[in-house]
Design a protein around this nucleic acid. Sequence first.
DNA 1: CAGAGATCTGCATAAGTATGAATCCTTGTC
DNA 2: GACAAGGATTCATACTTATGCAGATCTCTG
Lengths: 333, 333
Amino acid sequence: MVTIKEVSELAGVSQATVSRVMNNSDKVTDKTRAAVEHAMQQLGYRPNSIAQSLASNRSNSVGVLVSELIGPFYGPMMAGIEHELRQAHKHVIIAAGHSSEADELESIEFLISRRCDALILHVEAVSDEYLINLCRGSLPVILLNRHIEEIADHCISLNNKIGGYLATYELILQGHRKIACITGPMWKIDAKDRFVGYQQALNEAGIPVQQDLVVEGDFNELSGNVGMGKLLQQHPDLTAVFCSNDQMASGAIDQLRQQGRSIPEQVSIIGYDDATFAYYLYPKLSTVHYPVKDMGEMAAHWVLSKVYQLKIRSLKLVFEPYLVLRDSIATQS
Amino acid sequence: MVTIKEVSELAGVSQATVSRVMNNSDKVTDKTRAAVEHAMQQLGYRPNSIAQSLASNRSNSVGVLVSELIGPFYGPMMAGIEHELRQAHKHVIIAAGHSSEADELESIEFLISRRCDALILHVEAVSDEYLINLCRGSLPVILLNRHIEEIADHCISLNNKIGGYLATYELILQGHRKIACITGPMWKIDAKDRFVGYQQALNEAGIPVQQDLVVEGDFNELSGNVGMGKLLQQHPDLTAVFCSNDQMASGAIDQLRQQGRSIPEQVSIIGYDDATFAYYLYPKLSTVHYPVKDMGEMAAHWVLSKVYQLKIRSLKLVFEPYLVLRDSIATQS
DNA sequence: CAGAGATCTGCATAAGTATGAATCCTTGTC
DNA sequence: GACAAGGATTCATACTTATGCAGATCTCTG
């Protein structure tokens, strides 16, 4: 590998000058710059970024930890992050946490030991306390899809209340009154917020919230299927269901179809997340779009601005979801 | 940050000894080892992996380039790679190429300049020549999902002929005789091979291959939709279709439904890839499973064995797909 | 107990770049 | 032509760890 030294010798300057040419930090004459650049060309010089990192105490790499690499979330998120960071010539080092606390902690250690300049975390299992502590440290950390009040300025999250509200409001708007809800696991703040939005929309429309129109799922498909079964048993006359994510919506659709109910003619369905497969469901699922990619981009922007001093137009920390209307909702008269 | 020096001072040994304790390369007395480890504990020492890399000329990182981060493919692939490499404490640096030659080339440069110990590439746009050259260099490179004869031992690929064969064979087995095919773009070797498998299965069954039962698509949904339209126009009596990927299968299903054909009762469909959404289609799509995750794992194994001298049981370079039968195929009598 | 041999430890240097301090050179002024 | 001012360049050192070689210590044998 050709080093800065060889370049300097060929160009007839010192190593320091070559370094300065690369970082165009200090003033360099056009003439010497040209000479150096020519020498670099000629030798096919590539700076050794490891050595750069050691000397500058900057690794130029950002660690990204996601709870799961598989699933509809990770792709768009990573795409957003990678795209933005790369333009700034920063490296993305990834790690997966597999939704287990031990794994997530280990992954964070792993990334720290790699001397990442910043961390973008999409974690589930790790405790608030740990994260608060982490953020208080010297290593810049941004949390994706998680909101912790004490370190709110380190959190990029989605306003799930609005999402739940929008979904329910749309159903109301289409004339539905008997609107069921299959929630996510209520210990998850996301699930809770979405449910809050649901209640709020009903309240505003003067429709009482009936406890037995609400079933708690676990964000997996099967629970949507089972939940739908329960709901139909108790309320055969319901006309619409808000599912707290698309997986459960898919399960619910299966159950409805099994019972011979047509969608959306007899029962309207709305999901949440706008996962890739939502489009492929039949009928194509109307849902609440979760702007994961935008949020990934924003996390990258945050890092670029806080860590690498790039000027960023604006930093938005709380995102708002929006409706994606497809074919799973019908007007109820 | 606490360095090896501080550790050595606290432990009362030299830096070299501390280094040896970490790498347990040379013999170290249990006593001194204990002293050193105690000191490390006490100071909360974390080795600086940047410095390690510089000194050892090993970055312990593997560059992974994928053409697209979004899409059903890369999640499982990345998961497979990350999982295996992490167990060996290697870092994964990712880059996306966006299916453009310039971007892919730049990404490769980018990863090389990061001094990756090896590269795992999933590229589309870059030429064979370039890759052959790259593989001839000193940096270990493995190609995922691409087969180039000259460097076959650097390629992990899927036997697409078998896949096409299996899919078609299954349709024949279910009694179908009038089997159409929506291929991918024929300049892609994958698409071609899948089609070859289709032809072979028909030949073996003594069914003539009819050119007007074959339509060329572009792997996107719309082309499946359009292609299906054409096929139905010319052959209203066809009973089965082999689609060269799941996206096109989805498009074909839409078209069939639009024309009031029931699936699988009137027309059977089989896809290819087993993308996540295949399960969510209606009817749940029977398809050919593409073992992306396994292939990602194998790429990681390859790297671990070639670059880091880990012992790996076996290296498999050509994978075989298998059928996943769900609800989109019916028996034809 | 001497001495050979084996085992362990320390010294010194190397890896490639960044950067503050010091020096050199250029330019302009009188 | 001398000198100052300021810009361009170089010098020297730092960043942190790995490792060949030499030296130190220990173990065992005769």
